[in-house]
Simulated assay, not measured.
Amino acid sequence: MPDTLNQAKLFQIITNNLPVGYMVINKEGLIVEFNKTAENITGFSRDEVLGTPHELFHASPATHACPLLEHVFAHRQGAVNTETEIVRKDGLKINISVTTIPLLDENGIFHGGAALFRNITSLKKMQRERENILSMFAHDMKNPLLASIGFINRILEGKTGNITEKQQQYLSVVSNNMKNIEALITGFLDFSRLEQHECLPVFSETALVPLVKKIFTNLSIAAERKQVELRFEAPPETGFLAHADPFMLERALTNIIANAVKYTVPKSTVTVGLTRQGTSFLFSVADTGPGIPPEKLPLIFEPFYRGENHDGNGSGLGLAISKTILACHGGSVEVESCPEKGSTFFIRLPQGDMRRP
Rank of each mutant, 00 (worst) to 15 (best):
L5V: 05
N6K: 13
E28I: 03
G29Y: 03
T37Q: 11
E39M: 08
N40L: 13
G43I: 01
F44W: 02
D47I: 08
L50A: 04
H71P: 06
V72F: 07
A74N: 12
H75M: 04
V80H: 09
T82C: 05
D90M: 12
G91N: 04
G91D: 01
T99V: 14
E106Y: 01
N107H: 07
H111P: 04
R118G: 15
S122H: 15
K125H: 13
R128I: 07
E131F: 06
H139R: 10
K142I: 12
L146Y: 08
G150P: 06
I152Q: 01
N153W: 07
L156T: 05
E165C: 05
Q169D: 11
S172T: 05
A183R: 09
H197G: 06
E198A: 09
E205R: 15
A223D: 03
E224V: 09
L230K: 00
R231K: 13
F232P: 02
F247Q: 14
L249W: 03
T264L: 02
T264N: 00
V272M: 05
F283V: 01
V285I: 10
G289L: 12
P290W: 11
P290M: 14
G291E: 05
E295Q: 15
E295P: 09
P298D: 07
F301L: 10
R306F: 07
G314P: 06
A320P: 05
T324Y: 06
I325V: 15
S332N: 13
E336H: 14
I347G: 01
